[in-house]
Nucleic acid binder design. Structure first.
Lengths: 299, 299
DNA sequence: CGGATATTATTAATATTATTGATAGTATAA
DNA sequence: TTATACTATCAATAATATTAATAATATCCG
């Protein structure tokens, strides 16, 4: 059976039009008619019902069933192509959320260089939602992801390699600056500086504000952590960030949260379940895991 | 791309011989040579290395990578065929471990009949390991499975629908017969009657004997629960069985276990992740879940 | 109603692709 | 060296896919 037929079929399911599928693939319309016929003959069942009365196409139960498998098959094929291209070109495409890159990457780069991995390593920055998608569809081979809950996906392997609490950063002149530990509740009424858009920080932050029943006042937003830190230093507002910030800027104090079950920033290495790690990828994974052991004791 | 080529390739990986693959598929040897060449051209990388010195074939990293995906693709195709056959023939093949069949099936059969499902329902009996395999490879569409741990597989959906403790059954003349509850430890030195081979009972039983550090003496084995019950009644030995036994035979007393965290018999409905439930299958699932609610309150 | 439009099916011709038989090439073992 | 085992090559053939042309079917709308 030709996978082209499955691709035609898959497109037909969403386009609901033989001629549109033909256009999309740059083939003539009878080609699609024939392809669907071949599939129907192969599976011994009608896959679509040509409802000419309503000028529509209905997918039969058999068609629905096949559609699920067709999608899997086409995805696997696509991934195989991309993976083999990266493999032969000695490319290792690694997804990195900016915050993780900032903290963990400097720690491992020496080892990566020593292992000769830096040459073939190609990093792609992006938010965790985008990177999750990217590792799914093969744009990246592996990715680091931050999350509040442990990751569990059926098509992705997620190996947690670190877990750090979220903290509050305030100016040295702030009323709470002398404290080491506070309850999130004590921040009611504070001005916050916060990320523009950061899925994990948002999730964790919302979790805490909901639990404590208050609506935080965010006076400034930026995607640059260093900008946020400077604003904290100038006492414009307080920041809610992970503990994985090497050294808070001058004039900034870090406060731990005393809340029971505070949200944690979980970092994981993620790759596709059906992806065989190349020696390089296995090595990268190893180095990241090892770097963790070091960083854990360093805290 | 033709899936036949992937089938040839997949077989080549395990056979490591072009001619054997040709034989297996009943085609000529150049067909395989050509098929592999097509794949290599398509993926732009050598997939196997023909090592004529050692008269062997080595799979390249690209080949290994493709092999993983090829297996998935061939499996999906195979499942699609089987599922569509069952769908069009209005067959619903349900796997049933004997013990679950004994207890749960009578409870739901009235509802199944009312829903008109009994006609199309075809049951397959088998042990839980065999049935898990059968649902994976499409021999059955859905299956009930017993287990000691909650089931979690990436390619299978497992919905727990009941959970019952394991119990001890003794003769009314047995020294412990007057007790309602005992510790497993108190059975040290007892004669047991036990299943010949039953994965779940074995797992749970071993768990308890290990925890209590004793080697149970099994004086008789059978795969028929009723036979075991009769032997218990005659005080030949004591039995370790699930609580889901409608009415212990005459002259038999059931004792609950007092041990902390005693193993439980978990029953789940299991089907393939990539399988779209047909209306019938969805109905069966619904009825099983509903029947549970009833059976739960009945205890 | 009837013609314009849109869509899918059919068909015969053509183009593409897969398979084969025959045989060459390469290495091993005896 | 010869026999044996395995894979590659190649030209011929078989099988399959695609196409252009057109038929068939239904809608829309004046």
């Amino acid at each position: 059976m030709n996978t082209k037929d499955l691709a035609y079929f898959n497109d037909l399911i969403s386009q609901k039009s033989f001629s549109k599928v033909a256009q999309n693939f740059g083939v003539s319309q009878p080609t699609i008619t024939m392809a669907i016929k071949r599939l129907e003959a192969d599976f011994g069942a009608p896959l679509v019902i040509r409802d000419r009365v309503h000028n529509a196409i209905h997918v039969t139960p058999s068609g629905e069933q096949l559609a699920v498998h067709a999608k899997v098959i086409l995805r696997e094929l696509d991934l195989a192509h991309q993976e083999i291209i990266n493999l032969t070109q000695n490319r290792l495409v690694l997804g990195l959320p900016p915050i993780i890159e900032n903290y963990y990457f400097p720690k491992v780069s020496a080892r990566l260089a020593a292992a000769g991995l830096l040459d073939s390593l190609e990093t792609v920055e992006g938010g965790s939602i985008w990177l999750r998608q990217a590792v799914r569809n093969g744009q990246v081979d592996m990715t680091l992801l931050g999350s509040v809950e442990p990751l569990a996906y059926q098509d992705l392997v997620a190996e947690e390699f670190d877990r750090q609490p979220f903290c509050i950063y305030v100016s040295a002149e702030h009323r709470l600056a002398q404290r080491k530990r506070i309850y999130f509740n004590e921040l009611r009424g504070e001005d916050f500086v916060f990320f523009n858009s950061n899925f994990i920080h948002n999730t964790a932050f919302t979790q805490l504000t909901r639990r404590n029943h208050f609506q935080p006042k965010i006076v400034f937003r930026s995607n640059d952590m260093h900008v946020l830190m400077k604003l904290v230093a100038e006492n414009i507002g307080v920041a809610f960030l992970t503990k994985i910030i090497d050294q808070p800027a001058e004039n900034v104090v870090r406060l731990d949260l005393l809340d029971p079950e505070p949200p944690e920033f979980i970092t994981s290495i993620v790759y596709r379940t059906n992806h065989l790690l190349t020696p390089q990828q296995a090595q990268l994974r190893q180095i990241l895991h090892e770097a963790l052991d070091q960083s854990k004791t360093n805290f």
